[in-house]
Structures are given as C-alpha cells and as structure tokens.
Amino acid sequence: MDNKSVILIIEDEKGIANFISAILKANDYKVIKADSGKDGISMAASYSPDLILLDLGLPDMDGIDVLKNIREWTNIPVVVVSARGHEREKVEALDLGADDYITKPFGTSELLARIRTGIRHSEKHMGGNLLAPSSLTVGEFRIDFDKRLVSVAGKAVHLTPIEYKIIVLLSQNIGKVLTHDFIIKEVWGPYTNEIQALRVNMANIRRKIEENPAEPQYIVTQVGVGYRMVEELEK
C-alpha cells in the first residue's frame, strides 16, 4: 500500500478540477474527483479520503448542505473553495465544521499550504492523545506553553491574560483560519458579542509582537472572516 494521501475534489468545473488535480498529482497526492454534491458524498463515504476540497457552488445541491451531510458522520478535514466577496458563506462553512477555506482564484503554493495544514491537523486528531508540544516557534516568535511565556527575537513580551488566551488559541490551530465568532466563544465564553473587544485585543497583540502592525507577519487578518496564525514566515 502506498502512503500517498488521498484528496477528494468535489468541483463541477472541469477546468478547475483538472488543474487542481494536476498540481496535487505533481506533489505526490492521490486524487479522486466528483462533479456533483451527491457523488461527492458517496465517494467521501466509500473512499474515506484524507482531505476533501469542496467547491461551495455545485449544480445539484448547496455546497453548505454537502458539508453538513459529511460532518454528520465523519471528521475528514474539509477545505472549502469559495469566491472572494462571499465572506459570509465562508464564515458559515467554517462554523459548520469546515477546517479551512481557500479563495478563488488561488495560487499553487497557497493551495498546497492549505492542504498540508488540513492533513496535519487531522493527523493530530487521529493521534488522539499526542501530548501538546511544550513550545512553538515561527520565525522569531516563540511561545513557551509551560512557562506561559511569549517572546519575539528573544525579548519577552508582556501580554494580558486575554491576549495570551487568544494567542494560544491561534497557535493551537496554527495555519488554520479561526472565525471571529469562534475566537470570541473560546475566549469570552458563549452568549457574548465581543467583536469590538477582540479587535482591540488583536490590535494590542500586534503592537506587541509585530514589527509593523500594518504589515503583520505572524497573525494575519482574513477580512470579513477571522484571523490566522501563519506556520512559516513568507519570504
């Protein structure tokens, strides 16, 4: 049995499906394709792929419904493909259990990065009791979870408890986008609407850890959706 990861592409546009599968094949993934929601669901069930790339605009059913259906019975990572300007759709998909999204049009590197992150997170899932790492480093940014210490270029950064909570949450899901609602719920608890507070905290975090808050390196904004902590610095 070869060790290639299997990616299911649910996409009705032949051209896009072709080019995605070409990229993936070239990068040592095994690819299966479905061109409708129904086929996609049944193929997800029969092949049990390592990751699903789901286009939200499908001819036979709403992509969101496909996602709901899949999430009823499996935790296979799902990366949603959606167009720019459909931010609400993305947020909805993420809140319904999609692991990540990618905006059309996308480049090769972006696609591969999303897929890598998606598969890695699911491996963590499957691993179950894998001990959480005691530290995390991205570029010059470092978190020591045991000491509850955050530092940039070796200098310790003083964070408030809330700020620390946000950073830890993002780092636990490093590479994944977290919606505003998700972060708020995790940090402040349910039944609150602290989007303003989240923005203020995020601005403060950036001023503490980023060189220029208008050009953040570590925590990037996904306008209209949420925040993401990057796994590796862009060159």
């Binding site: 303003q196 950036r206 208008a214 050009e215 953040p216 990037v220 904004t221 306008v223």
Partner: peptide, 14 residues
Amino acid sequence: TPEAAEEIVAEAIS
C-alpha cells in the same frame, strides 16, 4: 461594520 483600519490596509498590502 466597524473594521480596524490597519487590518484592511495590511490585507490590501499583502
């Protein structure tokens, strides 16, 4: 909706 100006600028620049 209220947005942080820096976030918007950052996204555009990136």
